[in-house]
Design a protein around this nucleic acid. Structure first.
Lengths: 222, 222
DNA sequence: AAAATAATCAAACGTTCGTTTGAAACATAT
DNA sequence: ATATGTTTCAAACGAACGTTTGATTATTTT
């Protein structure tokens, strides 16, 4: 295996496990069993290496999502049901967790959504938005009762729970909930997440908030 | 305002904006307008400061959650509906976003769920689990058709979408979805999230996955 | 007022960081 | 085989990091 790929693998693993800033060039090159200067020689800088780590697998996830979407569309004569569309979006991300190496990218990507330091340029968001754009028409067709605003909020919530699952074991094992839930049961996780989100998206629009309380903000701020 | 609080405020803001490792002692003390040595004098170390930042507001959020839960319980003669219980869990976190200073803690906490480096000891998880334990009986009562495993998975999904909203503006503005959604519309966000999650939790149990496809894992790994 | 405790300060400590250097080793092409 | 380009290597660079020091200034106690 060549130097470039060994560096990418080591960096991907360390970035996912420890974080970007917490991973030093020395740790990377030592794990990859290459010389310290190799990163700067092959990639230019640490920041460029971060980009390269993301770029390497960025296409995989999104092309697989689009493949599954098309597959669902043709299988249902252009009108797939909500569960199939959701699965096309969700499955590739969680399926990649099975492959040991790809799993690290998923973890890293899940983290990148909430970590402001993980954003490697502006290319990735554009790419992921482009995919979501292809899914929007299907959601609009399947959920005509939702106005755009309501739909977009629910897509945020979908992304939220998915990202949480992608970031994975760490965050979930932090909670006692995990004593029962097995984060390695990918198929179960996909099925349950698809079911949950499908029900959430089909739910009634704009339900009024029930609790009549003094604003928590003031209490909490005081 | 005394030195200790000025440091806590500055650290909280910088931690939330830039991250833990990316925030230096010099940046903190400069923002707080105190001497560099003040952090070590008052807190002992940077790590101890991180803990102090979390500890300062950890109680607020959870006591407010329990207050709203009890409020919902008494208002409904011990049998609040699902929306009220969910609101009791969700509202305090998002309400705190209104207070400028507390908002930074929420952002920080949202990040801590996915960032392995943000975990400040083992105290916080215990505390947050303790709160969730008080909510579990209500969920079990309101959703008797769900077995424990299914319920816990759905609680994970709830936490996922909530944490995503808490981590806030950064992650959501990364997406084009945000052109319509206003992350500052706290009340709208609470209402929509409660509605979404309520529908998701009430959904049918263990829906089978629909797409009959070749495993994405292999394709993606290849 | 004197003594004692607490807090602030400028300066420096030793480490680790990302990056650069120039020579050595390797590969390829003529 | 010689020349050319590519990759690896040990060593060092300056900068930034968290922390410590010891003197100086405030505050409290007696």
């Amino acid at each position: 295996m060549n130097t470039k790929d060994r560096i990418l693998d080591a960096a991907e693993k360390l970035f996912a496990d420890k974080g970007l800033s917490e991973t030093s060039m020395r740790a990377i090159t030592q794990a990859a069993d290459v010389n310290l200067a190799a990163v700067n020689y092959h990639f230019g800088s640490k920041e460029a290496l971060v980009q390269a780590v993301f770029m390497r697998r960025a296409n995989m996830l999104n092309t697989e999502r689009l493949r599954l979407l098309e597959l669902a569309q043709t299988a249902a004569d252009g009108a797939p049901d909500l569960e199939s569309v959701l699965e096309a979006y969700i499955r590739p991300a969680l399926d990649m967790s099975r492959d040991k190496k790809a799993a690290r990218y998923i973890k890293l990507l899940g983290r990148a959504y909430t970590d402001p330091n993980s954003h490697p340029g502006e290319f990735l968001p554009q790419q992921y938005d482009a995919v979501l754009e292809k899914f929007k028409p299907e959601f609009a067709r399947l959920l005509p009762q939702l106005d755009k605003l309501e739909l977009y909020w629910r897509l945020h919530f979908l992304v939220g729970s998915l990202v949480y699952c992608m970031a994975g074991t760490d965050s979930m094992q932090m909670s006692s909930l995990c004593h029962l839930c097995d984060p390695n049961d990918t198929e179960g996780m996909i099925g349950r997440l698809v079911g949950f989100v499908a029900a959430g998206m089909r739910g009634p629009s704009n339900t009024a908030v029930a609790l009549d309380i003094q604003s928590s903000a003031q209490i909490v701020a005081g």
